[in-house]
């Protein structure tokens, strides 16, 4: 554990909490892509199956359980409890275009052709693109509430901080995992345009509004 990974994990946790609290307090999931949240639930489920086979640390187990539970709670709020506020007319990204290629790629490029390992690889590939339905929704409506922007910033920062963690681990522990690194770079790059808007607009107190 190093400072980059810890802050990355905390940033990830913060993102998930911001989203849950936002939906709960406003009693609304307007502006949130249910599809991205379904993809994240699928990501955590397929990645953390090793909870039953491999023990790493209490921290690791605890965080995995939190991520799984929080993602299912978010999906429940969007598709059940606050269904009436769900923006399904704008949430039209075709998720099969993300799920199927991620799955095929995980069969082709993986560390080991074993069920748990392929599901882990699939989750890494899928996570890297799982935010696309959300970014698509923001681009379709042309704007995002500040709280949604804070959520996206915290979620994007998490993988960016993991990149620093991987650089650190490469030098300090000679440890690296190319699959995670390449997918992590892709994931972080997808947020770059959003990061730019966040710094230039949201932090200056303006609403995130895309040019018409």
């Amino acid at each position: 554990m190093n400072i980059f990974r810890l802050t990355g994990d905390l940033s990830h946790l913060l993102a998930i909490i911001i989203l849950l609290v936002k939906i709960w307090k406003t009693r609304s999931c307007a502006g949130i892509s249910g599809k991205s949240q379904l993809l994240f639930a699928l990501v955590y489920t397929t990645r953390y199956l090793d909870l039953v086979s491999t023990y790493i640390s209490a921290y690791n187990t605890f965080m995995k359980l939190i991520f799984i539970c929080a993602s299912y709670a978010t999906v429940y709020l969007i598709y059940m409890k606050f269904k009436a506020t769900y923006d399904h007319n704008h949430d039209t990204f075709r998720v099969e275009f993300l799920i199927l290629p991620s799955f095929v790629l995980s069969l082709l490029i993986n560390h080991d052709f074993a069920v748990l390992e392929i599901l882990w690889t699939f989750s890494i590939y899928l996570e890297s693109v799982a935010i696309l339905p959300q970014l698509f929704l923001v681009s379709k409506t042309g704007e995002a509430e500040s709280i949604t922007s804070h959520y996206l910033f915290a979620l994007g920062s998490y993988r960016g901080l993991y990149l620093l963690n991987w650089i650190y681990r490469y030098y300090a522990e000679s440890h690296y995992d190319l699959i995670a690194i390449v997918a992590g770079v892709v994931q972080t790059v997808l947020y770059c345009d959003f990061f730019y808007l966040y710094v230039t607009k949201v932090l200056k107190g303006k609403k995130l509004q895309l040019p018409a």
């Binding site: 990645r47 560390h111 080991d112 390992e117 440890h175 995992d177 190319l178 995670a180």
Partner: peptide, 10 residues
Amino acid sequence: KSSSNKHDEL
């Protein structure tokens, strides 16, 4: 070492 079946990150 690259790759191991034990993924210790989240």
